Amino acid sequence: MLTSDVKAQTLTVTESLVVGVDAGATSTRVAVHALDGTRVGYARAGAGNPSAHGLGRAVTAIETALRAALPSGGGYRVVASVAGVAGLVGEVAPALAKVWDCAGISDGPRCVGDVPIAYAAGSPEPEGALLLSGTGAVAARISDFQQVAIADGLGWLLGDAGSGFWIGRAAAKAVVAALDRGQDEGLLTELVVADFFGDERPAEPRTVAGRLVRIAQADHMRLASLARLVSRASEEGDPTAVEITREAAAHLVATLRRVHVSGPVVLAGSVLTNDGPVRRAVIELLGDETAMTARDAAGAAAWLAARDLLAEDAARDLHPLFTACA
Rank of each mutant, 00 (worst) to 15 (best):
T207I: 08
V176D: 02
A216T: 09
L272H: 12
V265Q: 02
E235V: 11
G237L: 11
E200Q: 13
E185M: 12
S262Q: 12
P205T: 12
G210T: 00
G198R: 03
V230N: 03
D238N: 11
L272K: 10
V230W: 05
A172K: 00
I215A: 12
D184F: 06
V230I: 09
T207A: 13
V230A: 07
L187M: 15
D296K: 00
A216R: 06
M221P: 03
G276R: 13
D180T: 15
G269L: 06
R201V: 11
T245E: 12
L272N: 12
P264H: 01
A227E: 03
H220W: 09
A250I: 04
H220Q: 10
E236V: 07
A177P: 01
L223I: 01
R257E: 14
R222P: 01
D199Y: 05
V242H: 04
T290H: 11
I283A: 14
D184Y: 06
R181T: 09
P202Y: 10
V192Q: 06
A170K: 10
V192R: 04
A224G: 02
A171S: 12
L285M: 14
V175N: 01
A218T: 11
A254K: 03
I244P: 06
V175S: 02
A216V: 10
R246K: 13
H251T: 02
L212Q: 00
D184A: 13
R295Q: 11
E235W: 07
R279W: 04
F197G: 02
L188S: 04
T207M: 04
L212T: 00
V193L: 09
L188Y: 04
V271W: 07
R258H: 11
A170D: 09
V175M: 02
L286S: 06
A254I: 01
G182C: 09
A172S: 08
V213H: 01
M221K: 14
A250W: 05
V282Y: 05
T189G: 14
D180E: 14
D238M: 10
T189C: 11
A297W: 00
A178M: 08
